[in-house]
Nucleic acid binder design. Structure first.
Lengths: 341, 341
DNA sequence: TTGAAAGCGCTACCAA
DNA sequence: TTGGTAGCGCTTTCAA
């Protein structure tokens, strides 16, 4: 049986209360006594029992404010599912979640939503921040006011946030390059970018181009088009590019616009064109089934949600010196056989 | 705040002890009273608090006997790491692990080791069973004696084991076929089998062949060789096959023998040959770095170990009717860029 | 068949 | 600056 506070108290000839105060530096203990108790605890190999601690702290609920750009977004629906499952697993510890959803990528709107969620008596803020200096500033204000802030799925640099839970976008770009390299070392690639101003996508493209330059010099990027995350725009753009650049045999879709792109490709009957894209959403499975996508690189949204809540909880119960600054979920490559028997 | 036993007791005008006995069917409660208490609990939406329960049960340690063919095996070293991390996370709940390691695949030896581990006062047995009727019989005996048995990494059919934690080997064979199909729809494949009598490998080959037949008719299996999990044997066999079958441009390694196979290939200078294999062990990373492997399909050993301990714990604290019969870890595809920046 | 009460290990509050 | 004690929710034991 592990060492308990009670045992330390007996050994040190003080009360359990004093031991508790000493070990947690709550003050009100004579420095000399505190040192002695600390030494004894160290010596006996004391490790607080987290279950007892949790039970004792049950009264204090911990509420996580979760702010996500998730309206009508299947990726974030998965993420929320993960968060809610984690919440269920931690319910007995008193964990609660207040979810605020928004749509689109407007920093001003996000600032408003942040205010809204802060008004709901939360203990921790977890959000997917937009890459904007106003948001960064707001986050630092919140942290300064004493609240912990966690970033999910997308990080924001130069702030005092506690921890980022998400993937490495540069790496996911490299993976795309590697997959294309495996399929065809002489590939002629059309890149379909969703929105260049999104950090995630620019990082992917950076990783992609770096890897091609360094390791697959035979691969040629024919063109890069921007579809503004819109399927119809993607459809038009890809159709035109395919018509005018018959050498294209590979399409790399960096953001949304997957359905539109695939539609344009399947109408273009001249040759086989492989598609590499991201995530597993809406029609991904169907497109694999029809052979329109060759590979997709997934961000594990469910895991992101689950781990985010888990991390918030960990920080809440003990914000020790060496907590994780980053929890990186692996980029998972999926092919047709990942989905079908 | 959630409903507690105390509240139910007050409402029902009985003591907390009676409520506990009634809800858990511990006996010694008048059937009529028990029904009434049950109804009230149901009505109030009672859900026992797992933290309090755990604290209360702290005295009873739970010891998992873990029997693995892990001597000098890096794959299982990872698995053990996962199990130990899970144990550390559950230490405060009183979880202990007794590890017994063995080497090789001899059922008789495994029977002995099972006896050895049973003598150590364990509450639960978790093992990687060999696919042998004697082992199956032994497992059923153990289960009949009242102990729960879990299978890790490799299942054994037709037994009363509680839960299998591992991957789907048929699927991992299908994935190999899919990857090869992406790289070259006309591939001429040499299959290097480790040991045909291992269920895992025969299942992989089954999945592989099924998928090729159904979906990649252009792929041709030139030959299947058996290297008995031995690198030197693999080296000899592959070297000879490459010499005599110059059309081979793809090698699918189903079990061990990766280093030997790669060595033979790199000595064979005539053309580019892609390699698809399993797991991430010993020299995998190095071989990727040198470009000798194109893709590997990983079983997530760490996760297997972690989830195994977690599942044992879940079953131990409440063996409800609908526990999971299987925990399937995903087969994870890795390529060069999964390992290097 | 039931009630009462003593823990499990930790926190927090009040009194000294 | 300390000690004492009452919980947190559940289990278990002893008496009644």
């Amino acid at each position: 049986m592990a060492v308990t506070i009670k045992e330390i108290a007996e050994y040190a000839n003080v009360s359990r209360g004093t031991v508790d105060r000493a070990l947690h530096g709550r003050g009100g203990v004579k420095p000399e006594v505190e040192r002695r108790i600390r030494a004894i605890a160290e010596n006996m190999g004391y490790k607080p029992n987290s279950v007892a601690k949790a039970l004792s702290n049950l009264k204090k609920k911990m509420t996580i404010g979760l702010l996500l750009p998730s309206v009508k977004n299947l990726f974030f629906a998965d993420l929320i599912r993960g968060a809610m499952d984690a919440k269920k697993a931690l319910e007995d510890y008193g964990v609660e979640i207040k979810l605020v959803e928004m749509r689109g990528y407007d920093p001003e709107e996000q600032l408003e939503k942040i205010e809204e969620i802060l008004n709901q008596k939360i203990d921790i803020l977890a959000l997917t921040p937009f890459d904007d200096p106003r948001i960064a500033k707001k986050i630092d204000e919140i942290v300064k006011s004493g609240m912990k802030v966690f970033t999910i799925n997308s990080d924001i640099h130069g702030t005092q946030r506690c921890c980022y839970i998400g993937t490495d976008f540069v790496n996911s770009g490299k993976l795309a390059a590697g997959l294309i390299g495996l399929m065809n070392r002489q590939a002629k690639v059309l890149v379909v970018n969703g929105s260049p101003q999104l950090l995630s996508q620019s990082q992917r493209i950076k990783g992609f181009l770096d890897t091609i330059k360094g390791r697959y010099p035979g691969i040629h990027v024919v063109d890069v088009v921007v579809c503004n995350e819109n399927d119809y725009r993607a459809y038009d753009l890809v159709r035109e590019k395919l018509k005018n650049n018959i050498e294209i045999d590979m399409v790399y879709i960096v953001g949304e616009g997957i359905c539109g792109t695939c539609q344009a490709i399947s109408e273009f009957q001249r040759k086989r064109i492989d598609v590499v894209c991201y995530d597993d959403v809406a029609h991904t499975k169907e497109l694999f089934y029809e052979g329109k996508i060759s590979a997709t690189i997934c961000q594990q949204p469910y895991q992101q949600g689950y781990h985010a809540v888990q991390q918030c909880f960990n920080w809440f119960i003990e914000a020790s010196d060496q907590m994780k600054d980053t929890v990186l979920l692996e980029n998972v490559i999926k092919i047709r056989e990942s989905f079908f028997e």
